[in-house]
């Protein structure tokens, strides 16, 4: 794209994008730590995720300020306007991913404190898929790659399938009279959070499609 007649405009847009990518890194890091804490039996990682959530919230506020400042000073139009609006939307999705990571960390803490159960291993395949979809969503935002964004949206089906399968399996164990039901319920809640994170990654990919083509594909 050609350079803007106002140099600050390009640098501010670029800084906004950098901030969103950075926040995405923080949210992905929180997700990875929260599940790693559970799988590795490491309580410290769970506490880190809970403590670090405030930093993600602060990043969200900063991005809102940056976006508002660009809207106020430069009145962007066309793809620039879509870029600013979608970046603000995406930071909202990332903040919620951070919140889900905190939920996972708190549930993991409960499981670990009660004494780990073998079923936590069932989370791993779902976690790997969710990690992949979030990471891909951040890459397509950074590259503004519409084609890759559509692939991210398709990836969510596998996340949903794994979540359903895990829920069925653990529900059957509980219904079958498993002795320790609380850890199993916590794993189901963790699975639910991972599934929601997949949906948020889809939201990010949909925002990228909007930036690229001006087409709003949400709820279609």
């Amino acid at each position: 794209m050609s350079a803007h007649i106002l140099k600050n405009y390009d640098s501010d847009l670029s800084a906004l994008k950098d901030s969103v990518v950075q926040m995405g890194g923080s949210a992905l890091d929180a997700l990875e730590k929260s599940v790693a804490g559970l799988l590795e039996g490491n309580l410290d990682q769970c506490y880190d995720v809970i403590d670090d959530d405030e930093a993600i919230d602060t990043q969200e506020k900063r991005i809102d300020e940056q976006g508002m400042s660009i809207l106020l000073r430069f009145n962007p139009v066309a793809s620039d306007l879509r870029h600013v609006l979608s970046s603000i939307n995406i930071c909202r999705s990332l903040e919620r991913i951070g919140d889900h990571a905190v939920t996972i960390a708190k549930r993991s803490r409960k499981i670990l404190k009660a004494g780990a159960v073998n079923e936590v291993r069932l989370i791993d395949p779902l976690f790997r898929e969710v990690q992949k979809i979030v990471s891909s969503a951040l890459t397509v935002y950074s590259d503004v790659d519409e084609e890759a964004a559509m692939k991210v949206i398709q990836m969510d089906q596998k996340v949903d399938d794994l979540h359903k399968s895990l829920g069925k399996s653990l529900s059957a164990q509980i219904a079958g009279g498993a002795k320790e039901t609380e850890p199993l319920l916590n794993i189901i809640f963790i699975s639910r959070s991972l599934e929601r994170i997949g949906d948020l990654a889809v939201n990010i990919a949909e925002d990228v499609v909007f930036i690229s083509s001006a087409e709003d594909i949400r709820h279609t």
Binding site: M1, I5, L6, V77, A78, S79, D80, R82, S213
Partner: peptide, 19 residues
């Protein structure tokens, strides 16, 4: 024109990127 122009020249002009 201001939301999603078809031509790159238009997009460059309305978004202030006219060199």
């Amino acid at each position: 024109i201001f939301g999603n122009p078809t031509r790159k020249q238009t997009e460059d002009y309305v978004s202030g990127r006219f060199g």
